[in-house]
């Protein structure tokens, strides 16, 4: 186990080094660096990045780290909420489809998987805007809260802040703003989860212990929760990093469409303003956090898989 951890940490530092090299290349292309002083420049640059000393934005003049504190929480809350929603719904659909293989329900689940992986997120967001903001005017189109309300910052996460403040009117307004981005963002990962779960459930039901459970007279629900769900979790954990990665890609688009004040909107605006420093630093921070996430998931999946191996002999 310790060997494995050391190997993963080694890999992390090597990839971090490559990431800083790529970003330094971008820095050379965007700014002016003297060619004969390239090594000290690189060390200075990488040192600044690693110690989180990012400098100021050329557009607003504010320190970038302060701006990050403003723009990261909305993205993180949108990502986590949509991950939770799609995880629950997707796994439910997948298990239901897999347990009733070759039935009408399964056909519907398969159709949903196929449709979900071929519908681009920006198109479904547009359709939701068209349906729920133009034909039936119940949801607002932009922002994460109405301009009229003033919510004090406790944690930076709007969902938590609003509940701390405890004003019903504001809570409903926040939920209305949240609904459309959340649904359109959750559609694609939901289909992915459903596809993986359905596939591995079908493979799993060939095993004898599931048939034995049926013979013992356990209900479908019990089999789904006690036997299937526990045994397919390793498969899902292995794919989780790719799902989160794709989720962030679509999160950028959803933020741009719904004017959600998160990192996606910020990066897009900074590319339009050709603010190179923001692009470099956000890529560094996001890349590092995704790397850390990958390694954590790797370790987690090894642990989970090892444990299942031990228990099943």
């Amino acid at each position: 186990m310790i060997d494995f951890l050391i190997k993963k940490l080694e890999l992390f530092f090597i990839t971090l080094f490559i990431l800083t090299l790529i970003l330094f290349w971008a820095h050379i292309r965007l700014g002016d660096v003297e060619i004969n002083k390239i090594v000290p420049e690189y060390i200075h640059y990488a040192g600044n990045l690693v110690t989180l000393n990012f400098g100021n934005s050329t557009e607003s003049g504010m320190p970038i780290i302060e701006e990050m504190k403003l723009f990261f929480p909305p993205t993180i809350e949108l990502l986590l909420l949509s991950l939770a929603v799609s995880f629950c719904v997707g796994i439910f659909l997948g298990i239901v489809g897999g347990l009733n293989h070759h039935s009408v329900v399964d056909k519907f689940v398969y159709g949903f998987c196929l449709l979900g992986s071929s519908v681009p997120v920006y198109w479904s967001a547009q359709i939701f805007i068209l349906l729920f903001c133009i034909y039936i005017k119940i949801f607002p189109t932009t922002g994460n809260i109405s301009m009229l309300y003033d919510v004090p910052r406790y944690s930076g996460f709007l969902v938590i802040d609003v509940f701390i403040q405890g004003n019903n009117e504001i809570i409903i307004d926040m939920l209305k703003h949240l609904a459309l981005p959340l649904i359109s963002l959750s559609l694609v990962p939901c289909a992915t989860f459903a596809r993986i779960t359905r596939r591995s459930t079908i493979n799993l039901t060939q095993n004898y212990f599931i048939k034995a459970a049926y013979c013992r007279g356990e209900s479908r629900f019990d089999i789904g929760v006690h036997h299937v769900l526990r045994n397919i979790l390793p498969d899902i954990v292995q794919k989780l990093n790719i799902i989160i990665c794709n989720l962030y890609s679509s999160c950028i688009l959803v933020e741009v469409i719904f004017d959600w004040p998160g990192t996606g909107l910020w990066i897009t605006q900074s590319i339009n303003n050709s603010d190179g420093r923001i692009i470099e630093t956000t890529t560094f921070v996001l890349g590092t956090s995704f790397l850390l996430l990958n390694i954590t998931l790797d370790i987690l999946s090894t642990l989970v898989i090892n444990r299942t191996r031990l228990t099943h002999g």
Binding site: N241, N246, Y248, T283, F290
Partner: peptide, 8 residues
């Protein structure tokens, strides 16, 4: 390294 960075 590319695996961990979102494609966009």
């Amino acid at each position: 390294i590319l695996f961990s960075i979102p494609s966009i």
